[in-house]
């Protein structure tokens, strides 16, 4: 089971005051939450362009991590180059998924396509287990492992990378959908596909682009968590569901909502695991997910369908 570990070794908690322990849990929560947010953004991109929930999103994350490992081990590339290669590689997987499984069924309902993405996720996981086997790999930390003291708690340098990458990705996406014509055309295709065609937007190209883009964002998530948790062929299952949960908490389609959702989930999990029992960690996410789907499917921040960006 995938378990992020961004805090100090267990025994060091004993030397901390209660406040410092809480702070430590919060730091862990925000780090893990940033990853959930990144994965949730991948869901959002495809949902924004197509109204499909892509359940192979977690597999994009896994592939990002494992391709980086291969780039480093087989091609002897330094981390940044291996990472870029992995991001490009997973974008291509996204494009292939669209071409092979989504586009041929362009008139199918979103629910059919969602089921197809579940099938695709099982297929990708199977192929990954054949290529990389079932053992876990570790990506070395990007800038050392010397913890940075922070008001009596500590921050791992990799945590800063995770938060920084999540922030850069959300700001870039915001810029893309809010400022560029292509981004707006993608939104237009999602909300009003017929009218989008009538102004000359090539809808199938927009869908392709959304799969490539969410492949890239998913890969980025898989790369930055590589040094925090192991990367493994089946890590996408749990991470995909957590990212989906983040998107649902924030209201699927909302760029800041997913950041809020991811960090909320990360903090609740971390506090729950630290103060109650780590055995409940994953259960917490699913309880939140079910409660959200029952009582507030538009998300905590979501208002109506109209203001989706």
């Amino acid at each position: 089971m995938w378990g992020p570990d961004t805090g100090p070794p267990r025994h060091e908690y004993n030397n901390m005051t209660f406040e410092q322990q809480i702070l430590q849990y919060l730091i862990t929560g925000v780090t893990v939450g940033s990853i959930y947010a990144l994965i949730g953004m991948g869901f959002n991109i495809i949902y924004n362009a197509t109204e499909i929930i892509n359940f192979a999103q977690g597999e994009f994350v896994m592939l990002g991590g494992l391709l980086t490992v291969s780039g480093m081990q087989l091609l002897h590339l330094p981390v940044p180059f291996a990472a870029i290669l992995a991001i490009i590689g997973v974008s291509i997987v996204g494009i292939a998924l669209d071409r092979a499984a989504i586009r041929p069924l362009k008139d199918a309902s979103p629910i059919t396509l969602i089921i197809i993405t579940i099938g695709a996720s099982i297929f990708i996981r199977g192929v990954a287990s054949l290529i990389w086997g079932k053992e876990p790999y570790l990506i070395p930390a990007f800038s050392g492992e010397e913890p940075i003291p922070f008001f009596g708690a500590v921050i791992q340098p990799q945590s800063l990378w995770v938060m920084g990458v999540a922030l850069i990705v959300v700001l870039s996406l915001r810029q893309f959908f809010g400022r560029t014509l292509t981004g707006k055309a993608m939104l237009a295709t999602a909300v009003q596909p017929r009218a989008a065609k009538l102004v000359g937007i090539d809808a199938s190209y927009m869908v392709l682009l959304s799969f490539a883009l969410s492949g890239a964002v998913g890969a980025a998530a898989g790369i930055v968590i590589g040094p925090i948790s192991m990367v493994q062929y089946d890590m996408g299952v749990m991470l995909g569901l957590k990212g989906f949960c983040a998107a649902i908490i924030g209201g699927i389609g909302h760029p800041w909502g997913v950041v809020f959702g991811g960090i909320t989930l990360g903090i609740v999990e971390s506090l729950g695991a630290g103060l109650i029992s780590s055995g409940y960690k994953d259960a917490i996410a699913f309880v939140i997910l079910l409660l959200m789907l029952f009582f507030r499917p538009q998300g905590v921040l979501g208002k109506s369908k109209g203001d989706r960006v």
Partner: peptide, 27 residues
């Protein structure tokens, strides 16, 4: 060009963005 039945404007976007998207191919 067609003005479709029911207007089908891009409701989450601004008025100006709707117009700009009308010129999508010209961009």
């Amino acid at each position: 060009s067609q003005v479709p039945e029911g207007r089908l404007i891009f409701s989450p976007l601004t008025v100006e963005d709707n117009l700009k998207l009308g010129a999508y191919l010209r961009y």
